Computed example of a mutant assay.
Amino acid sequence: MKNIMAAPGYMTTLFVVLLLAGCAGSTTMGDGDVVAMPLTNTYWQLVSVAGQPVPESDTEQKAHILFLDDGRVSGFSGCNQYMGDYRVRDENLLFDSMSSTRRACPDSQTEELLFAALAKTVGVNLEGIELRLLGESGEELAVFEASRMK
């Protein structure tokens, strides 16, 4: 039986494969610059809304938003599912035809603030792993962070 460990180049090939596998989820380039995550098909977890950090919750599903390539948007407010349409032109972002489920929640403050932010959004700033929804005068309405789906 042939010993594959002794084959020339085996260890080098194994090292390169392991190195590339370790870098696959990285969002930084070699010079330390952060690579911006794409707006679409990224799980954006809500970090803050109306200047307030989103409180930790016991639920497995966190408040988030997903932008699909076909102009649809969907997400979870921390209590209810929501969906609708969106349009992006340059740095302008508008939501349209938004709707949600109507589940009663003991604490709906985050949901109320998020839905108000979506209604006021006219701009977007995407930098690295952060997505900021902006109001008419450039004020920050909500901040999301790119996160791996669990």
Rank of each mutant, 00 (worst) to 15 (best):
M1W: 02
M1N: 05
N3I: 01
I4P: 13
M5P: 04
A7K: 15
Y10F: 15
L20R: 06
G22K: 06
C23I: 14
A24S: 14
S26C: 13
T27D: 10
V34G: 00
V35M: 08
V35A: 09
P38C: 02
P38K: 02
T40F: 00
L46N: 01
V47S: 05
V54E: 04
P55F: 03
P55D: 07
E56V: 13
S57L: 08
E60Q: 09
K62N: 07
H64S: 13
H64K: 06
F67E: 05
L68K: 15
D69M: 10
G71Y: 08
G71L: 06
G71F: 09
S77V: 07
C79R: 02
N80W: 02
Q81C: 06
Q81T: 12
M83R: 11
Y86H: 02
R87H: 11
V88T: 05
L94T: 15
S100D: 10
T101R: 04
Q109K: 15
Q109Y: 06
E111P: 06
L113S: 11
F115Y: 14
A117F: 01
L118M: 15
T121W: 05
T121H: 04
V122M: 01
V124D: 00
V124Q: 03
V124M: 07
N125H: 11
L126R: 04
E130K: 00
L133H: 00
G135Q: 04
E136P: 04
S137L: 12
G138F: 01
G138I: 02
G138A: 02
E140V: 01
E145L: 06
A146L: 00
S147R: 12
R148N: 11
R148S: 14
R148C: 08
